[in-house]
Design a protein around this nucleic acid. Structure first.
Length: 222
DNA sequence: TGCCAGGCCGGGT
DNA sequence: ACCCGGCATGGC
């Protein structure tokens, strides 16, 4: 891939869609909770769960930390997998409390690579969730790869079907300036494109902003 | 009405 | 190192 390929795609998406204003949340803590709740789940359902917690004033580090898992599960029910996710949130909240006393600023002081490996040790936090937390809650310069990212890149022949998370992440990290605002906006734009034009069952390739037959020539294939 | 949504884990090969 | 089943609600 040429250096400019991703930059061109970014410019094209930004010109077309404009700024996406991610992550939709009132606080970094809400981003972290949302990142776990949205695992393999429609964002609309996550919003319901978030709202349920907000209504009870529970969407704060200490409050949620003290909430029994059983009750937590009841509030986040609309987000699906609620028992699994209650357990995962519990794991994360323990980590957040024990390592940083529930303090975002304290957490932000840890260097990116070390914080990432610590997050990945938390049961229930995988690469995408960790990177979402790092980028969108803590302003760290890391790129988030998700199902939309893969689908869009695959459709435009910029990756092979068996490309791994790390393969795809490397593309962005190695071909773009290390700029957290760029990473933030770019990923949000890819999701937007994925939602509006690159759906699994209803693709609208004929009117895709990046072009119908793949964005660039075949020589740019990875 | 079935299919899908901003994954991850644990056990098996 | 992969592959698969399980986890669950709500919208279209």
């Amino acid at each position: 891939m040429r250096q400019t390929t991703l930059s061109k795609i970014y410019r094209k998406l930004f010109d077309y869609f404009g700024a996406q204003g991610w992550w939709p949340a009132d606080s970094p803590f809400e981003v972290m909770v949302g990142a776990i709740l949205t695992q393999n789940t429609n964002w609309q359902n996550v919003e319901k769960a978030i709202l349920a917690l907000k209504k009870k004033g529970l969407l704060e580090p200490e409050k949620l930390y003290k909430l029994p898992q059983k009750k937590l599960a009841r509030f986040i029910r609309p987000a699906g997998y609620f028992n699994i996710k209650a357990g995962r949130l519990r794991e994360f909240l323990n980590f957040f409390h024990q390592s940083f006393k529930g303090d975002i600023a304290r957490m932000k002081k840890v260097p990116l690579s070390r914080l990432r490996s610590e997050l990945l040790k938390v049961k229930g936090i995988g690469k995408e969730t960790a990177d979402s937390i790092l980028l969108y809650a803590l302003d760290k310069p890391i790129f988030v790869v998700d199902a939309y990212t893969k689908r869009v890149l695959l459709r435009h022949r910029l990756i092979s079907p068996d490309a791994s998370y790390d393969d795809i992440q490397k593309l962005f990290l190695e071909h773009l300036p290390r700029d957290r605002k760029l990473f933030n906006e770019f990923h949000a734009l890819l999701v937007r494109l994925g939602k509006d034009y690159c759906l699994k069952n209803n693709p609208r390739c004929d009117v895709c902003p990046l072009g119908q037959d793949g964005f660039l020539s075949k020589t740019t294939r990875v």
